[in-house]
Nucleic acid binder design. Structure first.
Ligand SMILES: [Zn+2]
Ligand SMILES: [Zn+2]
Ligand SMILES: [Zn+2]
Ligand SMILES: [Zn+2]
Lengths: 130, 130
DNA sequence: TTTGAATTGTTATAATATAACATTATGTAA
DNA sequence: TTACATAATGTTATATTATAACAATTCAAA
């Protein structure tokens, strides 16, 4: 079990926004949305994002430069993440599959090396877009 | 079997540079290196990169915004890629593991959906950095 | 040989992210 | 409580990554 982080004001504002969003949010879209709450500069957003990623409350979707709230209690610390991304509507879903996590955590490369951190992004079409 | 693409001049110049590089290259570093060959603008670089990615001659390392030549003949068309990335020296290695490819290609999410395209980035320390 | 698609060249600009530094808040230990 | 260290904030400027728009050229297929 790990320490629960108390979010600071900026972190909480930005986390709430991302958490409510049905889709991943980009940094400058976040900035636009929190300006009325007094967060005026990109750095304020990026600093909160960095911290939120670090403590596992959100994840960055690398191929989209966007951020999504974590909805998988098992990946908080591990930073071992997997997502499916619809190439048409851009819907992103965090995958929580014990089998997949186990397979990847135990995967050894040809030097026999294991990796506890990974990021996997699957691309395809979601149900609605097929 | 798929059609071999004949690279255009810009594509060839940029591919050769990336292919010779021992590490992933970033777009503006590429630009700097090919200016003596007459490629002067970012767009010329990005267009070549887009095409090279599309035909599978290079891959983009999403978490680093950098590009690496493909050294895995089996992933040219599939766009199903996996890499290991050293968090200290930033060395990147393309993983060619039939087992891993097979596992991921056959992975079904909880809706039973399969994905033929994916990108997986493992993070850890390489041999030298351990 | 024409014609359409792809590529190139060029300028400008958009989008994403960090540097640097001063200030303020927060937690912890004497 | 006070003092110190650490983390977070505010602010301006700038660096880095990537695309828009449009004209000109190349190149291969009909
Ligand atoms: Zn998660
Ligand atoms: Zn969709
Ligand atoms: Zn490859
Ligand atoms: Zn290393």
């Amino acid at each position: 079990m790990h320490k629960e982080h108390t979010l600071t004001k900026n972190q909480q504002i930005i986390f709430d926004l991302i958490d409510k969003s049905p889709e991943p949010m980009k940094a400058y879209s976040i900035l636009f949305n929190v300006q009325k709450k007094g967060i005026k500069a990109p750095l304020q957003v990026y600093r909160a994002l960095d911290k939120l990623v670090e403590i596992g409350k959100i994840h960055k979707i690398e191929s989209r430069n966007a951020f999504i709230a974590c909805h998988n209690s098992s990946c908080r610390v591990a930073k071992a993440t997997a997502f499916s991304i619809c190439e048409i509507c851009e819907k992103v879903t965090e995958i929580s599959s014990a089998g997949l996590s186990k397979y990847l955590a135990n995967f050894k490369d040809k030097d026999g090396m294991k990796y506890s951190k990974y990021n996997l992004e699957f691309f395809g079409l979601c149900k609605k877009c097929r």
